[in-house]
Amino acid sequence: MTRTVSELMTPHPTVVEVTDTLHAVAQTMATQDIGSLVVAQDGAVVGIVTDRDLVVRGLAEGLGLDAPVGSIATGDPLTVAPDDDLRDVVRIMREQAVRRVPVVEGGLAVGVLSIGDLAAELDPTSALADISEAPAND
């Protein structure tokens, strides 16, 4: 039986607008204890931003806290649909060396699929699965 992205994705991702400030985005990540957010413009997915992006593309480059997140987000991200074949998506993620992909339906983000999600389900004894399933550090 073919498995689909919807079976493993994390549903209801947090979405921020391209105009949201780096400060607001960092606060959202801290409050929700997450390391990546989907970036949208008028609701349509246009990018993804990680905590590493905030540091490397924002702080290290001297951008202020009021800079828009769109200025540091990875634009034009690989996206997948909830009904996409999981094997195909894993292959594409591997080929393009991406760690997470927004799951989009009707132009809107409905989930995120990460390598941690994949490891926890498909390779549960791996170190990545253990790390992904562990509680967050305080």
Rank of each mutant, 00 (worst) to 15 (best):
D117F: 05
G116D: 03
P124G: 10
S114V: 11
D123K: 09
T125S: 15
G111R: 04
D117W: 06
L128I: 12
E105G: 14
S114Q: 02
V110C: 07
G106K: 02
A119V: 01
S126I: 11
V110A: 05
P124D: 13
G106R: 05
V103Q: 04
A127Y: 04
L108G: 06
D130C: 13
P135C: 14
D123R: 14
G107K: 11
D117M: 02
D123M: 10
A119W: 02
E105S: 13
G116V: 01
A129R: 04
L113S: 05
S126D: 01
L118H: 04
I115N: 02
E105Q: 15
E133F: 06
S126C: 03
G111L: 10
I131F: 10
G111H: 08
L108Q: 10
L118N: 02
A127P: 00
G107T: 10
V104K: 11
S126T: 08
P102Y: 08
E105D: 15
V112L: 09
E105K: 13
G116C: 00
V110S: 05
G107F: 08
L108Y: 11
P124V: 06
L108P: 00
E133D: 14
R100Y: 04
E121K: 14
A129T: 01
G111K: 13
A129M: 08
G107W: 08
V104Y: 03
A134R: 14
D123F: 10
L122A: 13
P135E: 14
E133P: 04
P135L: 13
S114F: 12
A134E: 05
V103E: 04
E121C: 12
S132I: 00
D117I: 10
A109Q: 12
E105P: 01
G107S: 08
E133M: 14
